[in-house]
Simulated assay, not measured.
Amino acid sequence: MAVYVVGDFLRETRLRKGYTQEEVSYGICTPASLSRIENGAQKPGRLILEKLFERLGTENNLFNSFVSREDMELYSAIQELIRNITDDDVAKIEAQIEVVERLAVNSSELEHQCLYFAKGELARQKEKDNEKAMEMYMKAIHITLPDFDGKNPLRNNLLTFDEIMIINSIAILYGNSENVITAIQLDMWLKEYMENKIVDGKMKTTKYPMIMYNLSCWLEDKGCYREELRMAEQGIDFCVKYGNLALFPKLVLNKGGALVKMGDNENARKYLHQAITIFDAMGKLEIVQQVTAWCKDNCEFEI
């Protein structure tokens, strides 16, 4: 059985995928630093190592980097902040920002990316200040993608999971401000990137259904019901395959809504009823009431 050190594994994976050192290291470290890491001449920090693996489309489940207690404490705090963001837990995001800020006083800009992103989420979700949220998102993304203008996809760039999360949040801002075309353009970029560049992993399982749900909603806003249906069905299939059911009922609901708009009332009723049943089992009674009322007002049938 072959035995790898981290540099060997990074280099072999990069070469197998056909990426240059410049593509993988862009915004994370210099190509020269990556070369030294691959050759075993430089020990990477835990966060840098993780981001390099993410650019290669995988997660760092195989290697650990020996770091100081302070570095490990900051890394753990950042991971907790990412979990809070993923869970949309505003109270925990606010509290964890203070923890990370205290630990990141003397750290590099890379460690601040998640901090700026979290402040953007707080501005969008709690303060309802979209202008401030966009400012924080752009400050975060420019740490590793300085050429991104906030609107046009950089299809030649490799992405980390944090970059995918930030770009998705930027798309949500555009969707909320009725700039739906830009929102669709950004999330279609992320959808295609995750399908083509990222192997199966925890972050893909978490984020891909959200992107499919966003796209199905925005395509409905533009009256593209057949495309809405396609996105919802792809999202449903992914949720079933990978056991991520958090967004499953919402995707089923969007599938039913698309079928209503396309005049397929028989199948629409079936999927809307399924969505309501799941929401009811989850105790989401407010959503059940909203969907029931929508069906009564917009459909030729009642649920």
Rank of each mutant, 00 (worst) to 15 (best):
I141G: 04
K51W: 12
S76V: 06
H273D: 12
D149C: 09
G120V: 05
L56I: 04
L159F: 14
D8T: 15
S108D: 14
Q290D: 14
L215E: 01
T206H: 07
M262H: 04
L74G: 11
N196D: 13
T86P: 01
M165L: 12
T205M: 04
C299Y: 01
A77V: 05
G7T: 05
A123R: 05
L159A: 09
L259V: 05
G223C: 03
S216V: 03
P249K: 08
G120T: 08
M136N: 13
V260Y: 00
E109I: 02
D88L: 11
D162I: 12
V288A: 03
L272P: 00
A133W: 05
S108P: 07
I287E: 13
L173W: 04
Y75L: 10
N84C: 15
E38P: 07
I276V: 15
V5C: 06
W189C: 08
V6I: 15
P146I: 12
L34G: 02
E300P: 01
L62P: 01
D88K: 11
N168Q: 10
Y75R: 10
V90M: 11
G40S: 08
I184F: 06
N214W: 06
L259M: 13
M72A: 15
L186S: 08
I198W: 04
M194V: 09
Q185P: 00
K204Q: 07
L145P: 02
A140H: 09
C239S: 12
S25L: 07
N84S: 15
K43M: 12
N130H: 15
V24P: 01
Q21R: 15
M203T: 05
G27V: 08
E121Q: 13
G40I: 07
Y208N: 01
K197Y: 14
N244M: 07
D149F: 08
G45T: 07
L103T: 05
N60R: 14
A2S: 11
F148D: 06
A118H: 06
H112T: 03
L34H: 04
M138N: 11
T144D: 09
K151A: 14
P31S: 10
A281M: 12
Y4M: 12
Y242R: 07
K17C: 06
A77L: 05
C224W: 03
D264N: 15
G40K: 07
E228I: 00
N267I: 03
K255F: 12
L215I: 05
S65Q: 12
L122Y: 12
V100R: 10
F117S: 06
S108I: 07
K207I: 13
W189P: 00
Y242I: 04
I303S: 02
L245W: 07
D280N: 11
E266V: 14
K207S: 04
T144E: 13
L81T: 09
N254K: 08
I167H: 03
D149N: 15
Q125Y: 13
H112I: 03
E286W: 01
L52T: 01
D264I: 06
M72S: 14
E227W: 03
V99C: 05
R230W: 01
F161D: 13
